[in-house]
Design a protein around this nucleic acid. Sequence first.
DNA 1: AGCCATGCACCG
DNA 2: CGGTGCATGGCT
Length: 260
Amino acid sequence: MESLTADAADGQQGLASGLPLGLLSLPPEANAAAPFSPLSLSGLPMDPSAALLLSGVTAPRPAGQPHSQSQPQPNLLSNPAALAAALVARQGAPQPPGPGPGSGSVGVKAEPAPAAAAPASPADPASSESAAAALSARMAAVGAAIIFEKALTASDVSGGGRVVVPKSIAEQYFPRLEQPSGVTISASDLDGRGYTFKWRFWVNNSSRMYLLEGAGELHRNYGLEVGDVMVFAQKPDGSLVVAGRSGNKSCLLTPALPLP
DNA sequence: AGCCATGCACCG
DNA sequence: CGGTGCATGGCT
């Protein structure tokens, strides 16, 4: 099976899972009064505009978007049924559409939560794959759709929790940023731990380089090293779910092919 | 032509 | 001396 891993080597990032999952569409950036936060984050006292968006304000059509990219993105957030359908279509998860997927406790498959501190799995390709599948399934169980995954690079790990996020992914699934300073976003993992990240960007040439800061804690919790994978998902309510799983380190540490 | 990983200067 | 922001270079 092909993994959804977004890697630098990929050059052009393939969309995570082909899911038409769209984050909250951004508000019209006509006014700079309200900074941002298209991504609805649960738990953190953030910009009120987020609450507004969640209140059922239909996302206004981004008429004159400065970003030249056109984005025919269906807003699944306002279409829970579609999201559920997508999830089911993807991995046959028995996720009952229901009136409100995010209401109350979801029928989470009772499974021993993996002690975050112990990723255990050495460097077994097979176990890596099964780990990915298991994680994917658990994400689906809580109604979270995987946005994308990133194999951590050396600088991602050693950079004090600064994780570079591919531009295409950034602009499609993460909150739009007006200024380099970015915004603070919150997330949680599957064990209920909460995280706070700084979502920001650097100006690089005439483009942007997107970056998620503060992932150090997550890395520590999951024991993520270079080559391991950081997973980003989103619940129907828009909340961000993060996780980590071991990648195929053996490939990185031990060359599979003999050097010439 | 971009994009992204990383080096590095600068600032606290 | 650690962290942040920037610029460069390697690679698609």
